[in-house]
Amino acid sequence: MDNAKGSYHMKKQSILWEMALALSTRLRLRRTSPFLWGLGFCLMCFFFIGLTSFNSGQQQCDCPRSHVLRAEEPRPDLPDAYDFNPSDKHKMAILIPFRDRFEELMEFVPHLHNFLKLQRKNHHIYVINQVDNLRFNRASLLNIGFKESMDSCDYIAMHDVDLLPMNSALIYKYPADGPYHVAAPHLHPRYHYPTFIGGILLVNREHFRQVDGLSNKYWGWGLEDDEFYARLKEAKLTVHRPGNLTTGTKDTFKHIHDRRVRRRDMIKCYNQQEVTRRRDRQTGLSTIRYHIQSRKEMTIEGAPLTILNVILECDRNVTPWCDCTENVGNTKTQRKPENKEDVIVPKLDRKKHISHDG
């Protein structure tokens, strides 16, 4: 390729020189007016300038490629060029449990990608899309996202697709000392109770494995985060939260969920209400059963992401409430929890700890 370019420029130079010599010869052989001599002189100057510009172009092309763009100097102005930042020794997997939230995903992915680029954080977004006919299981999708991403990442962000960080002081740092709750109760637009760890939670690979991930018993909406908090507490892992921010519950995040358009699955059936209010000691990361239907790599406005279309498996002997079409309404039981310490959900004052949807 370089030899071809050199030959091309040599031919250009030869043509220019021949044209200049021919013009000079004709002007010497014939009697010419001062006007023609002036015109000839101008044409000679033009040819000389053209010749030097071709030479300079050849020299510019011969510059080493590393002088044009160095790997250690990432270009933040290019949305799809931020692959690896050597100053960040870790890589984060953003795990998005997902089903039928396309409009929110289109806004979320480029926003978070650009937000993390400004922090120079190595990251990749995984959308774990539940495509079966069972009820939505956020916890199981997070377990799957962890298993499918940990070959290349050493910590995860359990991230709601409808929660966009707006304050640049929210740092998605590697949580070495314990889980880091970005969407803290004093910052989240809706939930404010002290043990809340939903929305956005960062956990490193070792700690997630230590507590065996999340429970797989939570079909439908709610409580899986509270059960996970019980696991962290039992493992003596301290949850850390951001402090000294100038923003609060109304302007730290943008909450783009519209509960009038997408109603949450609040149905309780069989003995779901009794079981899911207690600590799960049977299921978790080690017991998750699923099938990857397909894996898609794509970009949204230049932001790369991986979509995992997954089919969950349900053991109806353990969690018959994965499908409530045949039993709507919680089955009444007389049995009470044997160990009060296993109860994971305290009664909350909704006016104090839960605000309206933002």
Rank of each mutant, 00 (worst) to 15 (best):
K5T: 08
G6T: 13
S7W: 10
S7T: 05
I15C: 02
L23D: 01
R26L: 14
L27Y: 09
R28N: 03
L29E: 13
R31N: 11
L36W: 15
G38W: 15
F48I: 09
G50I: 07
S53T: 15
Q59M: 12
R65G: 01
E72F: 07
D80A: 00
A81N: 06
A81I: 02
Y82I: 00
Y82R: 00
N85R: 07
H90F: 04
R101Q: 04
E103V: 01
E107K: 11
E107D: 06
L116M: 14
K117Q: 02
K117E: 01
N122H: 02
H123T: 04
Y126G: 03
V127T: 10
I128D: 06
N129H: 09
Q130E: 13
V131T: 11
D132V: 07
L134Y: 15
G145P: 08
D151H: 09
D151N: 12
P165R: 05
M166E: 07
L170C: 09
P179E: 01
V182P: 12
V182K: 13
Y193A: 01
V203A: 04
Q210S: 15
V211L: 10
G213N: 14
L214C: 11
W221L: 02
G222H: 07
D226M: 05
E227M: 04
F228R: 02
Y229G: 01
A230D: 05
R231D: 07
K233C: 00
A235V: 09
K236Q: 13
K236N: 14
V239E: 00
G243Q: 12
N244P: 07
N244F: 12
T246G: 11
K250A: 08
R264T: 05
D280W: 10
R281E: 07
T287M: 14
T287W: 13
I288V: 15
Q293H: 10
S294Q: 06
S294N: 10
E297M: 13
M298R: 09
I300G: 00
E301L: 02
G302M: 04
L305S: 07
T306L: 14
I307V: 15
L308C: 15
V310E: 04
V310W: 05
L312H: 00
E313I: 01
C314S: 02
D315S: 03
D315Y: 06
N317D: 15
T325R: 10
T325D: 02
E326M: 05
N327E: 14
V328T: 12
N330M: 08
R335W: 03
D342A: 08
D342Q: 06
V343I: 15
V343N: 11
V343F: 12
R350I: 07
R350Q: 09
K352I: 11
H353D: 14
H353P: 10
S355P: 01
